[in-house]
Simulated scan of single mutants.
Amino acid sequence: MPDRLLLRVGAASQLALGGLLALSPLIRAFGLGDSSAFLITGLLLGLPHGAVDHLVPAWMSARARQLPARVTLLVVYAAVAGAGLAAFRAAPNLALVGFLVVSVVHFGTADVAFRAERDRRPIRPGVAVVLAYGGPPVVIPLALWREQVDPLLAAVAPQAPALLTVEVRTLALATVLCAVTVTAIRQVRAGCVRDAGQPLLLAGLFGTVPPALAVGAYFAAWHSCRHVARLLRHDPRNTADLGAGRLGPPLRRFARQAAAPTVVAVVALVALVTWPSHRADPLPATVAVLAALTLPHAVLVAWTDRREPGPPRPTGRPGQRT
């Protein structure tokens, strides 16, 4: 039987992006959605979904609850994020291209894991399905919205648009569209009709809605929301509440857990933008901070996805609440 929480969150995210897709003719007719403010807002709204990464290993493994393991995790996480930020400063063009590739893999495997956990079955990511879910948010805007996307890329890394030649973008687009088609057909044949429309929805959204709005909405209302729903299930202290259908206490618990790390990330971003001697533009600074956090986050999520899906086992006394 599918997990109720993930089933509802998945339906809500699909409805949100489906509504945006339905409004795409009006959005384009009135010239809406082009502002980078939509992108920045969506990225910031989705920021908390990775803010409890430092707690996840302790939820999943008894060994990770020991103090040395927790300290090691924080040090390694910060070091990898710092290395990512340094890479953006030292070689922004290559760093941005690498970030785009990592994003495709991360977005795709996240959706595969979400559906597997929703249906309580093992996670088995294949190349086609990963590209079908992870490719549209990255590849389609790069290929079909060059006039809008290239100035954003150039603001982050001046030579990045030149590295992504027309041939590279066309080949990537053809590959992603093939993956979307193959995945949809396979899901229909497997009887998963409700899932077959999801990669088609993503392809339609990013093909018709201006990329700043489409990416911002996807990151906040699809990727981040689905990941937060999985995190609520992974926290052992939420087991009793979720089993009883109580969503409020787990959400409040997550908000408390994510508050401090989110504030730290936002403060770091504000410092980059407003520091008197080293002021940075908001968009490049936001992308650089997000990219720096994405690599350790993606590695940690990949580690989580290797574990069997299903409800977590409580670590405290039965019925214990915090």
Rank of each mutant, 00 (worst) to 15 (best):
R189G: 00
A143L: 08
M1T: 14
L251V: 09
R194S: 15
R307Q: 10
R279W: 01
R120G: 06
A90F: 14
P309Y: 09
V104N: 11
P68H: 14
L39F: 07
G98Y: 04
H297Q: 07
T208L: 15
V56R: 03
L55P: 02
L7D: 08
S224K: 00
A62S: 03
P25F: 09
V104R: 10
V56P: 04
L73Y: 15
A116Q: 00
G135K: 13
V166E: 10
P136D: 14
T262R: 00
S35W: 06
D3E: 10
T315M: 02
H54N: 03
L163W: 09
V168K: 10
M60P: 00
P125C: 14
H227Y: 08
L43C: 00
D111R: 05
A229S: 00
M1Y: 02
V102C: 05
A16G: 09
V102G: 01
A91Q: 10
V149H: 01
F88I: 01
L26V: 11
L7H: 03
A154L: 03
V75A: 12
L85R: 12
G84A: 12
L32R: 05
L144G: 07
L74I: 15
L200W: 14
V127E: 12
T109Y: 00
P318H: 14
F30Q: 13
V104G: 06
L152Y: 11
V287W: 01
